[in-house]
Write a protein that binds this DNA or RNA. Structure first.
Lengths: 340, 340
DNA sequence: CCTCGATGTTGAAACGTTTTAACGCCTGAG
DNA sequence: CTCAGGCGTTAAAACGTTTCAACATCGAGG
C-alpha cells in the first residue's frame, strides 16, 4: 500500500524504459499502439499514480491556481469562486480554495504555502490590500474585488463608491433623512468606499454630513448585524435613523432578524438596504433591497486576467464593473411621511 | 523575476554549503547563530522561496489535506469546512477546498489531482458513496456526512434516518396527515435516508404510506425548491399536502419564496420543515423549522479521524452524530384543525 | 602530547519525473 | 546493395530539495 510504485516499476513490468512510460502518459500518440496497451495495462495492474511533485519539479509548472477568499461562508464569495472555477476549468486548470477568514495570519500562511507550491497563479481578495504580504514573489497575483492601489498587478473590482451612492440615494428618494450605515471594520477598503459613496449621495441631495450615522461592526457577518440592530434600537427615538444601509447582505440579514425580534417592522420602522444581492437576500424575512454585483463575472474575469499574466507583453489591467440596485420590500415606501 | 533562485544560490551567496541552508530552514537550532544570520540575510536578499515540490519529492509528505465538498455554495458545507480547517490548522496542516458541485466528473478530476499531489489526506462528501472513484490509492480518505458502505474507511455522518423521522413526526404531531417530501435526486444517500426516516414516522403514527407524497428534485438548491413549490401549488386542493419536509434548507427557502409569490401562507397553508439549520434558516421570510446537524463538529471530527489514519494500528471508525429538531414559525400550529 | 566527544559544516546521494539527443531498425527509393 | 528518412524507443541528465555519513575544529581529560 505504501511502497509507492513509480514510473520505473511500471517500465520494468511492461518491459520498456521509463521514458516510454512517460511518453504514454504525456504524448500517447508518439508511442506504438501495442506498447501503449502494454504500458497502460501495467499501470492499471500496479495501481500507479503519477507523482505530481516530481513532474512539477521537472516541468516547473503546476496546472493549479488558487483563490484565497476572505470568507468562505459568505455566499457572495462562493459565487465569485464559481466564476473563477468555470474559467479555470475551461483553461484546463484546477482551483484550490483557501479561506483566510479575514485573518491576515491565515492569509499570510496560505500565500506562503501557495508560493512554495509554485501554483500557476493566485487570486486573492485580501484582508488588507496595502499589506506587503502580497508582494511579488514570482507567482502572478490578481486582486479580486479590490483595486490595486499601485498599478503593480491586475485587479478586478466593482465600483463600491457608486454602489454606496446608489443605495443611499435610493433611501433619500424614499424620503429618509436620518440614515445609518452599518459596516466595518473600516480597515476594509470596501467599507470605506461604500461609505464614501453614501456621503456623496448626501452631498448630491444637499443633506448635511451628519444625516449619516456610521455604526462600525467588527466583521461583516450575520451576528454583527444582529448586534448592530440592538445598538440601533437602543438609540433615543428622536435620533434614531429611519433607514439603514448595510455594507453587505449578511449584516442586513442580521439586522432584519434583530428588528423582528425587537418588535420593529421593516420597512415601516426601519428601511434596510443590503449589499451583494446574495441569493438569500430575496428569501429573507422581508425581501431585501440590495446592491447587486456581477459575482460570477467578477470571478471569471479575474481568472482570465490571471491567465494572461505570463504572456510576454503583459500589461496589468484594472477592470471595474458597475453595481446595480435591486429594489425589494425592505425599502418599500408605505406610510412614509418624511420629516422634510 | 523568473530565474527562480534556489537553495544553492542562497548557499553560495552566504558562503556555506546547501546542506547548511537546508538546516537553517528545517532545524535552525543545529546551526551556529552567526551562520544562521548570514543565511537568513541571504534568503531575504535574494527573495528565496522554498520549492515545495522538491521538498515533497524528497520528503514524501506534504502538510496539506483537502476537502472535496459537494456544493461550496451551500452554507452547510462551508460550516463543515470551517470545522475541518480549525482541526487541520491545529495539526499544522493547511486545507485546500475543492468543489465537486455535485458533478462526478469534477469529483473524479479533483481526486485524481489530489492523489497525484500526494496530499496527506482527503476528506470527501462524495456525489455517490458507492462510486469506485474513491478507491484506495495510497492516500487516506475519510467520508464526511456519508457512511462508508463497507467498513473500508473512516466516516463521519449524522443519523439521517432519525433526522427525517424527527421532522415528519413533528409535522404529524402538529396535525398534518398529508405531507410532501421535497428532495432529490434519489441517487443521493441522504435523500434516501431522510425519506426512510419520514416513512418510519408515518408507520410509528399508524398512517398509511401514501400519506407522504415524494416530489423529486434535480438538485438540492434554492431554484429547485421554488420549482417544487409551483408543482405543489399545481396539485388539486383536495390532494394537496398541508405540510412539506424538505431534504435541505436551500430547498425549503426556495419553497418558501415560491409560496409567498403564489400568495400562499406559511405555515397556515403549508407548514415547512427544512434540514441542516443553516444560519439563513432563522432569518428566512418565515423563520424555518429545521433539523440541525452538528456541522462544525462533523468537520472537526472528520479531520481528526483523518489524522489517525497513518497510525500503525489504525482501525477504521464510523462516527455517527444525532440530529436535533429546531422548531420555528414555519411549523407553528395556529388555526390548524386537522382532518383527523 | 594524545585521545575523545562535542559541535558545526559539508559532499554526495537520493526522491520520481520529463526531456533531449541519439540510437537501432525498417522501408522504399535510387 | 546502399542509403536516406521515418519511426519507436532509450540512456542519461536534469529539476531543487533533504538527509546521512563523514569531516574538520576545538577544548578538556588523561
Amino acid at each position: 500500500m505504501k511502497p509507492s510504485v513509480g514510473i520505473r516499476d511500471v517500465a520494468q513490468h511492461a518491459g520498456v524504459s521509463n521514458a516510454t512510460v512517460s511518453n504514454v502518459l504525456n504524448r500517447p500518440d508518439v508511442v506504438a499502439p501495442a506498447t501503449r496497451q502494454r504500458v497502460l495495462a501495467a499501470i492499471e495492474q500496479l495501481g500507479f499514480v503519477r507523482n505530481e511533485s516530481a513532474r512539477q519539479l521537472r516541468a516547473g509548472r503546476s496546472r493549479v491556481i488558487a483563490y484565497v477568499v476572505l470568507d468562505a461562508a459568505n455566499p457572495f464569495f462562493t459565487d465569485v469562486a464559481r466564476g473563477v472555477e468555470d474559467a479555470a476549468r475551461e483553461a484546463g486548470l484546477a482551483l484550490f480554495l483557501c479561506n483566510s477568514a479575514s485573518d491576515d495570519g491565515r492569509e499570510r500562511e496560505y500565500l506562503e504555502l501557495l508560493h512554495e507550491q509554485r501554483v500557476e497563479g493566485i487570486l486573492i481578495t485580501p484582508v488588507d490590500a496595502e499589506s506587503a504580504q502580497i508582494a511579488e514573489r514570482g507567482t502572478p497575483v490578481v486582486l479580486v474585488d479590490r483595486e490595486a492601489a499601485d498599478g503593480s498587478r491586475c485587479s478586478v473590482a466593482v465600483d463600491d463608491v457608486l454602489g454606496g451612492e446608489l443605495a443611499v440615494t435610493h433611501l433619500i428618494e424614499s424620503g429618509h433623512t436620518r440614515i445609518a450605515m452599518v459596516g466595518g471594520p473600516l480597515s476594509i477598503q470596501q467599507v470605506r468606499d461604500r461609505r464614501e459613496g453614501a456621503m456623496r449621495a448626501l452631498t448630491n441631495a444637499g443633506l448635511p454630513a451628519d444625516a449619516l450615522t456610521f455604526l462600525e461592526t467588527r466583521s461583516l457577518q450575520v451576528a454583527e448585524g444582529r448586534e448592530a440592530g440592538e445598538r440601533l434600537v437602543g438609540l433615543p427615538a428622536s435620533r434614531r435613523p429611519t433607514a439603514a444601509f448595510c455594507a453587505n447582505d449578511l449584516l442586513a440579514l442580521g439586522l432584519l432578524q434583530s428588528m423582528t425580534q425587537q418588535g420593529l417592522r421593516v420597512p415601516d420602522d426601519l428601511a434596510v438596504v443590503g449589499y451583494d444581492d446574495i441569493e438569500f437576500a430575496a428569501a429573507a424575512a422581508v425581501p431585501l433591497t440590495s446592491v447587486r454585483q456581477p459575482r460570477e463575472q467578477l470571478g471569471r474575469t479575474a481568472a482570465q486576467l490571471l491567465l494572461t499574466e505570463n504572456e510576454p507583453d503583459h500589461e496589468h489591467r484594472h477592470v471595474k464593473f458597475q453595481p446595480e440596485l435591486v429594489v425589494r420590500a425592505s425599502t418599500a415606501v408605505k406610510r412614509r411621511a418624511a420629516t422634510t
